[in-house]
């Protein structure tokens, strides 16, 4: 069991690989996950509905980054690892809380 937690910690620490590889090969967004500007570049227009909804919600840590687009890769990596740990922390809180709730209800 302990080994699995260690593996999860290692995955979080290695997560910047997911940042380096696309950067190294100059890869852009995943298919269908472009920004409004990119869609405009590709198709010549901004779909009205997309324009209305694209910025509907501002995530607190957009794109797993705490900094700016221009940050160095090293700085971005720290933010990426921080995001990985934050995400795992929130997930564990959520699953633990929900499990407790589910088990309490069963007893009551």
């Amino acid at each position: 069991m302990k080994r699995i937690w260690i593996a999860i910690g290692l995955l979080a620490l290695l997560s910047p690989i997911g940042l380096f590889l696309p950067e190294y090969f100059g890869a852009g967004d995943a298919w269908g996950e472009w920004s409004l500007e990119t869609v405009k570049e590709q198709t010549g227009r901004e779909p009205e509905g997309m324009k209305k909804d694209a910025d509907l919600y501002n995530a607190p840590v957009p794109d797993y980054s705490f900094g700016e687009e221009e940050d160095t890769l090293a700085k971005k990596s720290v933010g990426y690892i921080g995001s990985a740990l934050l995400g795992v922390g929130l997930i564990l809180l959520l699953t633990l809380g929900a499990s407790k709730l589910a088990m309490q209800k069963d007893r009551g």
């Binding site: 999860i8 995955l11 979080a12 997560s15 690989i17 997911g18 940042l19 590889l21 696309p22 190294y24 090969f25 100059g26 890869a27 852009g28 967004d29 995943a30 298919w31 797993y64 990426y80 995001s83 990985a84 995400g87 795992v88 997930i91 564990l92």
Partner: peptide, 18 residues
């Protein structure tokens, strides 16, 4: 947690996407 983390490993492929 595993699913969350594995999805952070973006892999580039020919064609410029990940």
């Amino acid at each position: 947690s595993f699913s969350f983390l594995i999805m952070m490993f973006n892999i580039p492929i020919p064609g410029g996407t990940t």
